[in-house]
Design a protein around this nucleic acid. Sequence first.
DNA 1: CGGGCCTCCTGAATGC
DNA 2: TGCATTCAGGAGGCCC
Length: 294
Amino acid sequence: MPELPEVESVRMGLDRWVAGRTVEAVDMLHPRSIRRHLSGSGDFAGRLAGCKITATARRGKYMWLTLDSGEALLAHLGMSGQLLVQPPECADEKHLRVRMRFDDGGSELRFVDQRTFGHLMVEPLVPDATGVEVPGAIRHIALDPLDPAFDGDVFAGVLRRRRTEIKRALLDQSLISGIGNIYADEALWRSRLHWARATGGLQRRRVADLLEHVRGVLGEALAEGGTSFDGLYVNVNGESGYFERGLKAYGRVGLPCERCQTPIRRDAFMNRSSFSCPKCQPRPRGARVSPASR
DNA sequence: CGGGCCTCCTGAATGC
DNA sequence: TGCATTCAGGAGGCCC
């Protein structure tokens, strides 16, 4: 499941292959992949044709290719999206949704997406609240914790004013971006915080500690090329990452906590799962007891 | 408008 | 064996 480290791994790989190349044509193979590009397939392909890709960028789980037209091709991988660099003679993937061909006749850029939660769109670049140019559609996405401009003190203040649970806040891309279910559980395990802890009751130093662990786990995962469970996350060359070996909580239900040997528990959370150590991450007083699933 | 639930989707895994 | 159900989850939409 692509979160910040996986998206950044893809972006870095893409940069090398597409920066400086000129788009010749785009083949649209599934309308759902551009459902957020409201003016449709023809407009999407037309805005890309003839454009030169000048650079790549990322914020949170979104990445984009800047174009010499002043617009950007924005991509979100969703659950199963892949951006692959493939030679033209390579057979179409089963779930190939969009193909971009270049005027040099070299490798194509292919958007492959089994579950179609990912999407692409062409958007004008506009200044965000701090003056940085981002695709218009993601103006509401917060800075991610690896962005040098991310301000931990501001984040702590925002958190403490919120009336919600800490894991919900970590997953809220308008507060802090790039974190999904896996790295939220890992950062909370490292911080010894239960997912249901109220954000309003967290001391500033606990928020600072949590943020340090968020940055730590994202950075370590990035260094390993990301996390792959099922082969659905791969970099532009189709290679999986290795960070699943570094996971301490996510997916480890029943296995011993590496700090205290207590079996990791699994709670139902937001129609999905949350993994934590019952001893290191005690349930806060007054938190509802979620039915353990499976 | 803040908070939180619902929905979209496919295929692997599980259940009976 | 085979059909049906469950599960995974990002984020926009929508309801209260």
